[in-house]
Design a protein around this nucleic acid. Structure first.
Lengths: 208, 208
DNA sequence: CGTTTTTCTTAAGATAGTTCATCGTTCTGC
DNA sequence: GCAGAACGATGAACTATCTTAAGAAAAACG
């Protein structure tokens, strides 16, 4: 266990973890010891473009933080259509939450859209941290609460906005993300076809 | 503080809390002391049909557990259309999560569909419990994780299923809920008009 | 109860969004 | 730097779902 911890530290030293630490600090202020404990529970992993890190049928073993890169998670429906469920670029968290939280087989693919570097923590390690340490348990609780609030906002947006409004909203909110995503992934995230998204974008240009 | 606690106990004794305790037990096994601590943090409240317990513009002060009754939460969009975001009948939890978690003004109405009895805990009391008590903090973390997983499943369903599939799915999953809801609320929850839901139901009958 | 209000059904016309098929463009891996 | 694959744009035909409107049924409430 100590050996593993040291090994992780060694690997983690190769990467700049400051964005990760900043991200955590925005949620909770950890003691130096706990920061250290948390950091050494994660492993740096390099992922090649198009590589899957979660696949349907397998239990999602990791919670993932993207240090650098881009991912999307998607499902394939009965008719073979791909539907993007989540994105994540630098500084975002990602998993198949339903699978990870309940440790049941995943229904989503999680695929790298670029060559990426991530931090991952496995389920059991996370449980141990939460069982052993108050501050870290609080951190993970805050993350879950924020996720739930975020997902609730997304449901509202899906229920109340038209395709064009959803697109404008997304562009306004995450302009940097839009530029790094393939349009087909964004279209399906926004619950429309790629063709229709293309039309929306084009109508906008013409209006100007 | 002690007085308030005794008062709550007194009120709570008037109601059968066993479904609530069962609901908690399914998530985590609490010590008798903590069960007692948790229970006395909630207040029993009676709510009349059509009464609002959360309204846009006001911060959602309470997390709510429905002992008996039915609620829906909804937003009103720019065109004046009502969109149901959540339901809750006996034994379900409910709030405007985004407002409650971040303590920002709500965007949702939460309205009783029947005369109901609920348990409510206010934000500050919940924070105190979580700060003071490991087991209770864990309980609230599990609740948040389960909410997030549930919301994620709902997003997937909205992205991948047709109106008719969403309806069939819901009926299969929550047959008891369907019977207690007005159709207009269910329709907007499933992201369709009441007229279209009516058509779907009717087409089904004819096919038989 | 009977009346008033709310909810549900039906149907025709309208539209947002899809499907399909094609073509030009841009990546990507070697 | 090239060949092949992946991606994006476009237009025409199509369809799932919405809108509007009006009557029927059901529920609420004095």
């Amino acid at each position: 266990m100590l050996a593993k911890k040291c090994l992780n530290l060694y690997f983690n030293m190769m990467e700049d973890l400051s964005p990760f630490l900043e991200n955590i600090k925005r949620k909770i202020s950890l003691s130096p010891d706990n920061t250290e404990l948390l950091t050494s529970a994660f492993r740096v992993v390099k992922v090649k473009r198009k590589q899957m890190i979660i696949q349907p049928g397998f239990v999602a073993k990791y919670r993932i933080y993207v240090l650098k890169g881009a991912f999307h998670s998607y499902v394939i429906d009965d008719k073979g259509n791909q539907h993007t469920i989540q994105f994540a670029i630098d500084d975002w968290w990602l998993s198949d939450y339903n699978s990870y939280v309940h440790q049941t087989p995943a229904t989503q693919f999680v695929e790298a859209l670029e060559n990426s570097t991530v931090l991952q923590i496995d389920y059991q390690t996370e449980q141990q941290l939460k069982d052993a340490n108050w501050e870290l348990a609080t951190l993970f609780r805050l993350m879950a609460e924020h996720s739930a609030a975020y997902l609730a906002r997304r449901i509202v947006s899906n229920l109340t906005q038209s395709a064009e409004e959803r697109y404008n909203d997304f562009v306004g909110r995450y302009p940097k993300v839009v530029q790094r995503l393939p349009q087909y992934a964004l279209a399906s995230y926004l619950n429309m076809t790629r063709e229709f998204l293309s039309k929306i974008r084009n109508d906008k240009v013409r209006k100007k």
